[in-house]
Design a binder for these strands. Structure first.
Length: 162
DNA sequence: GCCAACGTTGGC
DNA sequence: GCCAACGTTGGC
């Protein structure tokens, strides 16, 4: 079981939408590192923190899981799509994405400001300067510390940790 | 809306 | 393979 963090712009695709949709194919990622995490490393059942970026108060708002392992992102083939990539082909797709499944919304958002105060996250990739990755790995201990901060009960914590 | 910090592209 | 120009991300 691996742990991840997915960023989503709050005004584009908030967690409330994922909750409604239940599952969502995470298309539109056009960064090789982020793609490789999804394509090469993610497995069904992996847990993911859901982060709202470009929000008034950016922060982690809940938990999702990898529901389906990576498949070619169809938007790369659609000329009219803003995610269209003329250098990609169906024979050799360039972009892959996983499907996420909603799990849980925190009672309260854990703001970026709060995250910065957590000693468990001192080494975290999320807080590293200039980090712009929209999909990134999270250490199990970091994931756990965040769930604790979110006020999950021992039972819930165990369930979300998997 | 600004801008720092990247990542990508393409000419050479 | 270098690097300038350009595009994007995301906090503020």
């Amino acid at each position: 079981m691996k742990y991840w963090l997915f960023k989503s712009e709050e005004n584009e695709y908030p967690i409330t939408q994922l909750k409604k949709d239940k599952t969502e194919f995470w298309d539109g990622v056009r960064n090789y590192q982020a793609r490789n995490f999804m394509w090469k490393e993610m497995e069904k059942g992996d847990r993911a923190l859901f982060y709202h970026s470009n929000a008034k108060i950016p922060g982690i708002v809940g938990v999702a899981e990898v529901y389906k392992e990576a498949a070619p992102d169809p938007t790369q083939f659609i000329k009219k799509s803003k995610y269209y990539d003329p250098k990609s082909s169906t024979e050799k797709p360039r972009w892959y994405a996983v499907e996420l499944k909603y799990r849980k919304t925190f009672q309260e958002k854990i703001s970026l400001e709060t995250l910065k105060t957590m000693s468990a996250l001192k080494e975290s990739r999320l807080l590293m300067k200039g980090n712009r990755l929209s999909v990134m790995p999270i250490q199990k201990a970091e994931f756990k510390a965040i769930l604790k901060k979110a006020g999950l009960s021992a039972t819930e914590l165990k369930k979300e940790l998997g």
